[in-house]
Amino acid sequence: MIDWLMALAQTLLFVAMAPLLGGWIKRVKCHMQNRAAPSLWQPYRDLAKLFRKHTVLAANASWIFRATPYIVFGATVLAAAVVPLVAVNLPTAAIADVIVLVGFFALARFFTALAGMDIGTAFGGMGSSREMMIGALAEPVMLMAVFTLAMSASTTNLSEAVTYTLNSGLVLRPSFIFAALGLMMVAVAESGRIPVDNPATHLELTMVHEAMILEYSGRHLALIEWAGQLKLMIYLVLVANVFFPWGITTEMSLDNLATGLVAIAGKLALLGVLLVTWETVMAKMRLFRVPQFLGFAFLLSLLGMLTRVVLESGL
């Protein structure tokens, strides 16, 4: 019972911290680009404002359009529940393994794309079509990267995989490096960051994710934005905890939990800085350059897999 409560607490922490991570990234980015930065708490204020505001629905929006924000939010929160954030061996990790996790994102993407087509504007359809294309190319990369890990750890359960990396100590595995790089590139593509998509733009010709959700407003938009921040955080936590799990707690004591909390906060802050650096030095790509970007990511993951099979089969 206490385990389930812990899992619930960890999920709540996950959901609550996601906007903060978004705020951190935005702040670092502003500093790096010599701009005045908003407060760390700005994303919370934005969400609060959206929750308070009136919701305007397009005249011909169907129930799919209204249900989508809730489904997307529900699926993303559940995805957050199965990812180990501060502690491993929590019971929620058994509900869904990493393949199901990918499935949650696919479910959310499916409904967002449908919602994009629901109103019948050209923007919505354009966004849906592009998002599905990017998703189609990114998902195999992600699975390939996690398969490399799953084969080494001989499990697809995230908690078990983290424990495995934790126990195997600091071994330099070429396959993990390839897989981690592949996963990071997917994280960039899937969470709609530069160079694949630009979350800050509403320029018609370049937007992907924003085009799909153009018709959303008020609390619906708030839920979708929040789910987006959560998704970015899940990807960063995956990279942080699966490949560099040190600091995560295996036992439930106050000291260990505090260590775990500090460790993950530090890792996420670092990854945030890395992401911002990447976004600052890169330019947004043309849409049809994205397949090459993701093709390269796939190649990295494939190399990781082959390295695992050829070089590390004895490990």
Binding site: K53, H54, V56, A58, A59, T121, L214, E215
Partner: peptide, 12 residues
Amino acid sequence: RAVNIRRGDPWD
């Protein structure tokens, strides 16, 4: 804490 939903034209 719902506020009413208003229907309007989509963005054109």
